[in-house]
């Protein structure tokens, strides 16, 4: 494992960059996914159509295509930002479709009578969703949402492959192709780096799942 230990500082840098991609994408895709899910269950037909369009587009387009569009297509439209920005943006857009569907499944698992009772008290759509439906949807949402998010954590490596310099994936790339290290030990190190993120995240999800389950 000497390639890993010799380049530990490079690995730490890569780990931190991956973590930054993941944290920004996590916040972005949860917020955007929630908005898209709200659109999909909205009583306003144009919003529903928009939500459906969004999910259909980003769920059915390969992540690499979304990333190419963001990183190389948007600059052609005159939008100039860093590759880091475009990488995170692409990952957010792509993942938001899956987040939205996980949340929508949770919303649909709440009995219709709950929303009817809220509406009959005079609560509007957003209050009904926020105070009555979503808190109850959370319970069923945690496991599928967890899978979507962990997939997103791993997809951050694809963002790295798209030229976001210095994340875990590119650390492995640099060590093997530019500096001539052997692939196997280098990428075992990379894999361990990702496991250091995904395994605690999985454990945290289990804790959350137990927490929200008690509330019933």
């Amino acid at each position: 494992m000497s390639p890993v230990l010799d380049n530990l500082d490079l690995y730490v840098d890569g780990f931190l960059t991956s973590l930054r991609i993941i944290v920004y994408s996590l916040i972005g895709c949860l917020l955007l996914g929630l908005i898209i899910a709200a659109c999909r269950v909205s009583p306003v037909p144009p919003l529903r159509a928009f939500g459906t369009f969004w999910v259909t587009t980003f769920r059915n387009t390969p992540l690499t295509v979304v990333l190419v569009f963001c990183a190389f297509g948007l600059p052609e439209l005159g939008i100039n930002r860093s590759f880091f920005f475009f990488g995170v943006l692409g990952l957010i857009l792509y993942t938001s479709a899956f987040v939205a569907e996980a949340i929508r499944a949770g919303i649909n698992s709440v009995p219709a009578g709950q929303a009817e009772a809220a509406r009959s008290l005079g609560l509007g759509f957003s209050l009904t969703l926020r105070d009555v439906v979503l808190p109850q949807a959370l319970r069923t949402v945690v496991p599928p949402l967890g899978s979507v998010l962990i997939a997103m954590f791993k997809n951050s490596a694809v963002v790295g492959a798209f030229g976001v310099g210095g994340d875990l994936w590119s650390t492995g790339q640099i060590l093997t192709s530019a500096r001539g290290y052997e692939t196997l030990p280098v990428f075992i190190g990379v894999a361990i780096g990702y496991l250091l993120i995904t395994l605690p995240a999985g454990a945290l999800l289990q804790v959350i799942e137990r927490k929200v389950a008690i509330a019933r």
């Binding site: 009578g113 709950q114 009817e116 009772a117 809220a118 509406r119 008290l121 609560l123 009555v132």
Partner: peptide, 20 residues
Amino acid sequence: LARLRADVGMVFQNFNLFAH
């Protein structure tokens, strides 16, 4: 409509109390 519903109380067959 929400304003009007606030003035009309409704009691359901299945109670529909907020479970959480």
